[in-house]
């Protein structure tokens, strides 16, 4: 499987090699989280945005930081608080007396990689300012439209909803995130390595960019060329159909979510250096894709993750 050559171009193969190097570098910093790191890269390649949901201190910020470092993009971190205003994200126009005009000062959203910490701590007004930018790839301030840079990759972290002082994101806005996962505690062996090896912050500083924005754009285009067979589409449709069965969830996955699933699966296949999507790719991205989009039917004692895994086990692979 690994013998596949995606394209005859030398540049393409080189790009891909550097992509894998970047992933390895992030894995070295974030020990024992290969799967999540893979999904994060997958999200980036699929032009999506990432939602990391977990308790503080498990490495959310480190992941975002490492990712931004290796992909060599300019990076901003925004800490959401309850008194944050939309202008704090988007930027403001300030009157310049000497020029007798307003000058636009772009906010932190005008970066290629943004880490939004604790996205559910801000008020809905501020949240929607961010999410609109994520969806449209542009922001409109005082009737002027500003195009956001490319690549544009938002990683948001979120505290579990039962913590005090949060504003849960509405379903329609959760849909803007392509994938979401939690990092979880490291397993004992990895934790021991974490405790004994050098400081992560210093490692981060030392990490150099392995890719550049042009590479990312090219890689994103390469992903779209990954082949999807009829058999695989059958499987995706079967999965979507199953989520719409009301014994599982309140509402099923939308066609937009289906498109997202296909995009994410393609990116994962590309990341694995394959020129076609397999059902395993779909199965790997599906929980991350469905978790924040589906709410279990009330009265179910299972967690959404358990529900999703059970659903996957119910759908035969054609």
């Amino acid at each position: 499987m690994n013998s596949t050559v995606l394209s005859t171009e030398q540049g393409s193969a080189g790009r891909h090699a550097r992509l894998l190097e970047a992933r390895t570098a992030v894995n070295d910093i974030l020990l024992g989280k290969d799967n999540q790191v893979g999904l994060a890269f997958c999200c980036l390649l699929a032009r999506g945005h990432l939602l990391i949901e977990d308790v503080p201190g498990v490495g959310k910020t480190t992941l975002a930081h490492a990712l931004a470092r290796v992909i060599g993009s300019d990076y901003q971190r925004i800490q959401f608080t309850s008194d944050l205003l939309p202008a704090d994200i988007l930027g403001v126009s300030i009157y310049k007396r000497d020029k007798d005009e307003f000058e636009f000062h772009p906010g932190p959203i005008f970066s290629q990689v943004i880490l939004v910490d604790e996205v559910n701590r801000a008020t809905p007004k501020t949240q929607s300012a961010l999410l609109e930018g994520m969806a449209e790839g542009q922001v409109t301030i005082e009737s002027t439209t500003h195009i956001l840079p490319s690549p544009f990759f938002v990683m948001a972290t979120q505290n579990p909803l039962d913590l005090v002082g949060t504003y849960p994101l509405p379903d329609s806005q959760l849909d803007r995130f392509l994938l979401s996962f939690s990092l979880g505690y490291p397993d004992p062996a990895e934790e021991r390595r974490l405790l004994t090896t050098e400081d992560r912050a210093r490692m981060l500083d030392r990490t150099s960019a392995l890719l550049n924005p042009d590479d990312i754009r090219a890689l994103q285009e390469d992903c779209e060329k990954v082949h999807v067979s009829e058999n695989l589409l059958d499987y995706i449709q079967a999965l979507l159909q199953e989520t719409r069965d009301d014994r599982w969830f309140e509402t099923g996955l939308s066609p937009r979510a289906g498109l997202a699933l296909l995009r994410a699966s393609r990116s994962l296949a590309f990341l694995e250096n394959r020129d076609f999507v397999t059902p395993e790719d779909v199965k790997t991205v599906f929980p991350a894709l469905a978790r924040h989009r589906l709410s279990p039917t009330s009265g179910f004692s299972q967690s959404p993750e358990e529900q999703i895994n059970e659903l996957l086990a119910q759908v035969p692979i054609p």
Binding site: T278, P279, E280, K283, L312, A313, Q314, V315, P316, I317
Partner: peptide
């Protein structure tokens, strides 16, 4: 094996 298992699984 399960019908929902992929070939690699």
């Amino acid at each position: 094996t399960l019908p929902s298992d992929g070939a690699i699984e």
